[in-house]
């Protein structure tokens, strides 16, 4: 799946540099603690390396199979409960930074897609299929399945709730939003 708008930011490296500085400080103040923490990090990294390889292999496969345009096209047509199910699936399959999806969702809203569909899509993004192996490694299969089912259920529930609020006029007067055409 394409990850739209992914930019080569340096934030991650600054974060790592800040953590390294913390370790230097810890090594000066409490060398044993710093060493223990470092050993723990290496053990954890060794444990998760095979799973991370699988995660990135899945990311590659998803990227190849899906494009944001295809996902957005799927959201463009269906309405009501069917639309929410499509939004659920699209949210699950979507990837990349959330910032990249806002303009695309705004475009769909302007075309008449309801607020509830956007809400379902955004909530469903919590289910990350490529990251499932990592979740199973840490928390087990039963947990991963239960959490995914609840997330999917509550994504749909957020659609129901947002739809009721939308129909009650809760989002009327969103000045920054283009006036939606009727769905």
């Amino acid at each position: 799946m394409n990850r739209p708008g992914a930019k080569a930011g340096r934030g991650g490296w600054w974060f790592l540099a800040a953590v390294a500085a913390l370790y230097v400080a810890a090594a000066v103040l409490a060398p044993e603690l710093a060493l223990r923490a470092l050993e723990h990090s290496l053990q954890a990294l060794g444990r998760m390396l095979p799973v991370l390889a699988l995660v990135f292999a899945l990311l590659f496969a998803f990227d190849l199979a899906l494009t944001p345009q295809r996902i957005m096209q799927s959201l463009d047509r269906p309405h009501g409960a069917h639309g929410w199910l499509v939004a659920l699936l699209a949210g699950i399959l979507s990837a990349g930074p959330i910032y990249a999806w806002y303009p695309l969702l705004a475009e769909l809203r302007a075309k008449g897609v309801r607020a509830s569909t956007a809400a379902v899509f955004l909530y469903a993004r919590a289910i990350k299929l490529p990251l499932l192996p990592l979740m199973v490694l840490y928390f087990g299969i039963a947990y991963s399945v239960a959490l995914s089912i609840y997330l999917a259920g509550f994504a749909l529930l957020s659609g129901v709730l947002m739809d009721k609020l939308d129909r009650a006029g809760a989002f009327a007067g969103n000045s920054s939003l283009p006036k939606p055409k009727k769905e």
Partner: peptide, 14 residues
């Protein structure tokens, strides 16, 4: 960012 693209009320409520 969400408020800018999808509306302030929508972003807050969601």
């Amino acid at each position: 960012a969400e408020a800018l693209f999808l509306g302030r009320r929508f972003a807050l409520v969601r």
